[in-house]
Design a protein around this nucleic acid. Structure first.
Length: 579
DNA sequence: GCCGTTTTCGGCCCGACTGTTTTCAGTCG
């Protein structure tokens, strides 16, 4: 069945449903209806295939959270790009009100009140009304509400939306060190999306087991870096720092730490699933523990004990996204996820031959020191001037140097001579086949002209995949998180081509890339496509970022054997030769 | 609006904190 190449993507459709949910909430619709649209949006974001493809096979209603009504709305969006239901909703509820929801402390109920009682429509209206003291005249509101709203509006601009996983990780480590040194803190850990290794992180969520919680919370909220205290209680406090970073800190006594850590780790949807499961067992799950029918609170120091009390295996945080992991834990069918120390090879690295910082020998030693048995040196081709890439005629001299280093390092590490070859804007590879044939391993990647239309840029990638010398497609979309959107690929076509050609897809571990993402990596492995996790190292320190890539693989549910980098050197070379 | 080892109708997670209230609604995660 022919598909409309301009059809809306899953992400775009999800955004429509999120808009509907917010508008309906302001309108005062039943919260469960609102929740249904939110769930549908989340489901769409998790889909490895475009909704258009699923719809062509009549499979949309099989997607969790998508029923008859929402299927029809998706079909209307796919065929017309518009939705009559949304148009009518926007006539009832002015869409400019959605901006007001972004102010912290302001939710749908307050927005509805501002709109209906004071006729406010925009953020500017709200600011003017707050300054004029009109907000305090509304029922249930006072002077404090007004100052909070003004502070919230002021904070909107300063407040960065989300941060990269790398920034979150570094900040998290710093705060955990501070917490662990605080008297009475027995344990301090990261939770939230940082612990689940989501590709971007909103707020930092941290948890502690602490004997003297009030003292800790007081110290936390009066830390010198704090510009605003968003909340302070005995068990929970929230602060905003000068750079816009928000941190939430939860505390429970050590005997309840397991339930607290689970709760704060989320995801929200995973928690909801667990609470439903508890309910069916006549229990109630909260961050304090399980409460039985008689009101008796059962406390658990560790997460394992809470999961066990619900009849579940412990679920690795990276899987806690309500994508079927609860059922798997119930049936003892969770995957045995890959771990960072399973890695034996780095197959994408740069040296001073292009834009790397170290010589081939120093890179090889750095990789060896990190437990690797294989290092592929894959310097850039010359298409991108900025990388000081290599001409094909440079390759024999580089090969000679690699031979020298091999002699010096002996059997400590296997060095492969490779290249990261650019796929030019016209789809032609930067090196001729004769040059590629001389290399041990060839990576092809897109770096420029990423905004080409879907058909064009997909054709470009397919051309590289079909070249028999190309072993790996690196960071397929070329995205830079929070900075640059990736190529708008036709993933179905990409999957089919790599499947036919036995090409591997890379999960690029650089925290600003994390490309291939978890959703597509999961689907690729289900199709039998080999995955490789690489740091794209330009320095020794870059090699230490492999765990970010592993976290993507773990979120994708990957086991060790699905990832080439865990294989022994003989198996890797055999795989390369077989191609 | 979705969904079914209690249900095709009647449910749909739980608690902390805040600001306004004298008992609670709204927001948040």
């Amino acid at each position: 069945m022919p598909q409309n190449p301009d059809a809306m993507t899953n992400v775009e459709i999800a955004e429509v449903f999120e808009r509907i949910a917010n508008l309906m909430e302001i309108k005062g619709e039943l919260v469960f209806k609102v929740r249904a649209y939110q769930r549908a949006a989340e489901s769409l974001r998790d889909l490895p295939e475009e909704a258009a493809a699923l719809d062509a096979r009549g499979e949309l209603p099989n997607v969790p959270g998508i029923g008859k009504a929402i299927t029809e709305k998706i079909q209307e969006l796919l065929s017309t790009g518009k939705l009559e239901f949304l148009n009518r909703l926007e006539e009832e509820v002015p869409p400019s009100l959605l901006d007001l929801l972004r102010v912290s402390g302001v939710g749908p109920k307050k927005v509805a009140l501002f709109w209906k009682e004071l006729g406010l429509l925009t953020l500017a209206d709200l600011e003017t009304a707050a300054k004029a003291g009109k907000i305090a005249t509304l029922p249930g509101m006072g002077a404090k509400t007004e100052t909070n709203i003004l502070a919230g509006i002021a904070g909107l601009a300063a407040r960065g939306s989300r941060m990269s996983l790398g920034k979150a990780f570094t900040a998290g480590q710093r705060w955990l060190t501070w917490l662990r040194e605080f008297p009475g803190v027995q344990r301090a850990e990261a939770a939230g999306s940082l612990r689940r290794f989501k590709e971007t992180v909103g707020d930092l969520d941290l948890v502690v087991a602490c004997a003297d919680s009030p003292a800790l919370m007081a110290a936390f909220t009066s830390h010198p870096g704090v510009v605003r205290v968003l909340g302070q209680g005995e068990n929970k406090s929230s602060i905003e720092l000068h750079d816009g970073l928000r941190i939430q800190l939860w505390s429970q006594p050590p005997e309840s730490f397991g339930a607290l850590w689970m709760y704060a780790t989320g995801s929200k949807d995973h928690n909801v699933r667990l609470r439903e499961l508890a309910q069916r067992r006549k229990l109630s799950l909260s961050e304090r523990g399980l409460t039985d029918e008689t009101g008796n609170l059962l406390r658990y120091p560790s997460e394992e004990e809470v999961y066990a009390a619900l009849g579940l295996d412990w679920v690795p945080p990276e899987l806690r996204e309500d994508r079927g992991e609860v059922d798997a834990a119930l049936n003892h069918r969770l995957p045995r996820l890959i771990e960072t120390n399973d890695l034996r090879a780095e197959l994408h690295s740069h040296s001073t031959w292009s834009d790397g910082l170290l010589s081939i020998e120093d890179m090889a030693l750095a990789a060896f020191q990190r437990g690797h048995k294989v290092l592929a040196v894959t310097d850039h081709s010359s298409y991108l001037g900025i990388t000081r890439g290599m001409k094909p005629e440079d390759l024999p001299r580089q090969r000679a140097e690699i031979e020298e280093v091999r002699k010096r390092l002996g059997d400590r590490i296997l060095i492969l001579h490779g290249a990261e070859v650019d796929i030019r804007a016209d789809g032609v590879l930067d090196y001729p086949d004769e040059a590629l044939a001389q290399l041990d391993i060839v990576i092809a990647s897109l770096h420029a002209s990423l905004r080409q239309p879907r058909e064009q840029i997909t054709a470009r990638l397919l051309n590289a995949i079909r070249n028999p010398h190309v072993d790996i497609i690196a960071h397929p979309t070329g995205r830079l998180l929070l900075d640059r959107a990736g190529a708008d690929l036709d993933w179905q076509a990409v999957f089919q081509a790599v499947q036919e050609n036995g090409t591997a897809l890379e999960i690029n571990a650089a925290p600003q890339r994390l490309d291939t993402d978890d959703i597509h990596a999961r689907h690729a492995v289900s199709l039998g496509i080999p995955i490789t996790i690489n740091t794209d190292a330009h320095s020794a320190a870059d090699l230490d970022q492999a765990f970010y890539g592993v976290s993507v693989a773990r979120r994708a549910g990957l086991e060790k054997d699905a990832v080439i980098n865990t294989w022994e050197p003989e198996r890797i070379t055999a795989w390369l030769k077989s191609r």
